[in-house]
Design a binder for these strands. Structure first.
Lengths: 332, 332
DNA sequence: TTGTAAGCGTTATCAC
DNA sequence: GTGATAACGCTTACAA
């Protein structure tokens, strides 16, 4: 399965290799006759340019490497959409790699991405240590998504998790709630920001924070609620760690005979496709995923083109999506 | 940002380029002293081999290209897991590309994957026309997942959608149902197979098929059910097009005051993470996604290594996952 | 407008 | 063991 090369095309078209190269790159200074001959020969042979040889010879790359820490997470898929949009508009293409949520595999993924000598690299939700990030940034322009870093050699684009939790609390307070608990995401990424945002919003409203340990899964959400139900007091509203956590919490509440939102209101986080299902219809916090991808792509390309060396740290504003799991606190 | 080359490493280590190459490839015939010197120099310079130059010079590739038609679909993420598993075990690495569910973008994605001259290519859920598939198969070994083709130049690995729907029908029949309708997936991939499987299973049981047009979304599922509720007669069980469709159907039923599964049983298809949520707990058909990925990887590597030229067309057996949306038909 | 020739960063084949 | 040297498929001055 040895594929035709420029040499073959040149021979068939009766021209030199260089001319074939010019045609393939759409140079204007090629006679129409030759151009047609070359194109015909290429077509006949099923020739298509060898990307690696091209980039090797030209010392440039039109490839942007993307490391996705978890392909199962639809969040990243939308970020990739945004990235791809700006990449395509600027003539770049994406190659994606995955880290499988393990630091060692992820490090390998980044190395192998770098081995292609891409013009730049976007790391989506990386879990590798800062030193690995710093090392990568020495090899190519790097932008981080869903991971913050104070390194001045790379850019970051993140959702403002503190602001997001704040929105959730504000919404619930405006509905008359004051006993508002937070299901904490534990070690999940962005969980600390979300907790901080919750705590400070509660304090801002003069309310007492109530943090319940949990995780980013529906199982954990259900478990946390069941424990909560053992206690003396029940909150009237819950700010869940994320959408999955919220859904788990809801099912545990319903099992216990409580109704959402009549007895208790719940706000999720992430606005995953799950939240939008009519069966779920979860009030939640939306991250501008597509926008995050676009901004990450733009930041990366600025560095790639050498237009900027100063780091850019973007924090995007999330927004509240009101659906059916929150309502005004019923009078006692 | 011009990165160090073998030449640089050789200079620093005080050896020739060739020796550096030997060290980088773990050749046994290098003295320990030199090896250490080279490794130290490489480390110091932050050198890492240039994948493209390497593959160009060696005329071999350790890259497997993967085109994922829809990154948002978690189904493919699990297939990729399986692929990655066998690829890693055999010393290959994956580069992923995405087609964004559009034939033209997908075709471009395949072309750009092929431009890297990968050892082989896996196309996950491609929507391009057969001629494009045939063309790709001329350029490199190709395996198709979630797409069938009779082309003898490529392998395919698919879920047996007919068998899957059959399982759903059998399950419902065993629960005493006989008025079983099918929400058809329309133009969705695999939808025809699922419909055929439903129809033939019904006939096998001596029951009358009842196909209701729908789509692979929760909105469509809800809509189909609402129309169904206008009619004179109601089925006692539903075989949905897929899980999303099933969830939409359930919410429409509940809106109408019907209970699932007391009044009507529902079986989904795909066993997405959604189905497993306790809040949903959907009885559904599971595809061996990971296994599909592994088998696709194995088939591809067999071709890559030239061990086989005969096409392999795999059809994998799905399985029934019983949860809470089906129950025995209540006596009239 | 077209051709020649010198790389690009590797690996591979030989000599030494 | 180690080091030249010729590919690999392409781009890109520079000549013609």
């Amino acid at each position: 399965m040895t594929r035709p090369t420029m040499q073959d095309v040149a021979r068939v078209a009766g021209v030199s290799r260089a001319l074939v190269s010019l045609v393939m790159n759409g140079s204007p200074k090629v006679s129409e006759r030759r151009r047609q001959a070359v194109l015909a020969a290429a077509e006949k042979l099923g020739y298509s340019p060898h990307a690696m040889a091209r980039s090797l010879a030209s010392r440039t790359s039109t490839v942007l490497g993307v490391m996705v820490s978890d392909l199962h997470n639809a969040f990243f898929a939308e970020v990739v959409d945004g990235l791809e949009e700006v990449a395509a508009a600027e003539g770049f293409e994406l190659i994606i790699n995955t880290g499988g949520r393990s630091p060692s595999r992820e490090k390998r993924a980044v190395t192998s991405l770098l081995a292609f000598r891409p013009a730049g690299v976007a790391l989506l939700g990386p879990v590798v240590p800062p030193t690995t990030l710093a090392a990568a940034a020495e090899q190519a322009p790097v932008v981080l998504v869903a991971r913050s870093s104070r390194l001045s050699t790379l850019d970051t684009v993140n959702d403002d998790g503190e602001a997001g939790s704040g929105l959730a609390v504000d919404h619930l307070v405006s509905l008359g709630h004051s006993l508002i608990a937070h299901l904490d995401g534990g070690v999940g990424s962005q969980a600390p920001q979300r907790r901080r945002g919750y705590v400070s919003a509660m304090q801002r409203h003069g309310l007492k924070p109530w943090v319940i340990p949990s995780e980013y899964t529906d199982i954990a959400g259900a478990k946390a609620v069941r424990q909560l139900l053992q206690g003396d007091e029940l909150p009237t509203a819950l700010v869940a760690a994320n959408d999955f956590n919220a859904v788990g919490a809801i099912s545990a509440l319903e099992e216990a005979g409580l109704r959402v939102p009549q007895d208790i209101s719940i706000v999720g986080y992430d606005n995953t496709s799950l939240a939008g299902l009519r069966h779920v219809s979860l009030t939640t916090i939306d991250q501008p995923r597509h926008e995050i991808g676009r901004l990450a792509g733009e930041a990366l390309l600025q560095r790639v083109r050498g237009e900027r060396t100063e780091p850019v740290k973007r924090l995007l504003h999330p927004s509240l999506v009101v659906r059916s799991t929150t309502q005004a606190r019923s009078p006692e």
